[in-house]
Nucleic acid binder design. Structure first.
Length: 201
DNA sequence: AGTTTGATTGGCT
DNA sequence: GCCAATCAAACTC
């Protein structure tokens, strides 16, 4: 079964990332329309978790496209990615933000007292609204508990791009894509400098 | 076996 | 604007 989703996701990550804008990610009742993503290009990308080769955490990225890669950071947050590219190419697209379009009550209960447009604003907030955690890494997005459904492509003139958020490596690559003007798009934050490292001298 | 760090968020000086 | 929270994974002996 070679559906449209598989075909699209198996392409180059820089094509896949903007194509995921407007797509719907669903887990149970909660569904999110994606408004912001970032591309990570495996072995060629010092910002990627897969840059230094396979590990227990990132191994799902080395398999075929169409699976969910979830990781845990800062001792409290989950972030989720869609694995893309051909098998053996560890590329992925980080799902950074979206608007809740289904299961609003459940999402509100998970997120607490925030405005609806902020329910899935930022990658960790999005995972929390959707109830995504480490147990869901490796989920098949065509047949699993978490599913991805493509929307109509967002026109190129409605897509903006810029540097990825919070990266110390390759901070200038403009591999973050978002729907221009969408209120759920997160704010840009530069990586914090490492102590003892001064930019000049 | 011990140390460092982080694809973040929310609360407070 | 700045900084603490909090721990799994990666990295370094």
């Amino acid at each position: 079964m070679n559906d449209q989703l598989t075909d699209v996701l198996t392409g180059p990550v820089l094509d896949v990332a903007p194509r995921l804008l407007g797509a719907t990610l669903r887990h149970g009742e909660v569904a999110v329309r994606i408004t912001e993503v970032e591309a990570y290009d495996g072995p060629n990308d010092p910002g990627s978790h897969a840059f230094r080769g396979p590990t227990p955490r990132n191994r799902i990225m080395f398999g075929p496209s169409g699976f969910l890669y979830v990781y845990f950071v800062y001792g409290m947050h989950h972030c989720c990615n869609v694995v893309c590219g051909p098998e053996g190419t560890p590329s992925a697209v980080l799902i950074r933000a979206g608007e809740v379009v289904g299961g609003l009550e459940v999402a509100r209960a998970r997120r607490g007292d925030v405005a609806d447009r902020e329910l899935a604003r930022g990658p960790a907030s999005l995972c929390r609204a959707l109830g995504i955690d480490l147990t869901l890494t490796g989920t098949d997005l065509r047949t699993g508990q978490v599913t991805l459904t493509l929307g109509d492509p967002v026109p190129a003139d409605a897509i903006a791009s810029g540097p990825r958020v919070g990266l110390r490596a390759a901070p200038d690559w403009p591999w973050r894509f978002w729907i221009s003007g969408a209120p759920s798009v997160s704010r840009y934050v530069a990586a914090k400098a490492r102590p003892g490292t001064s930019p000049t001298r």
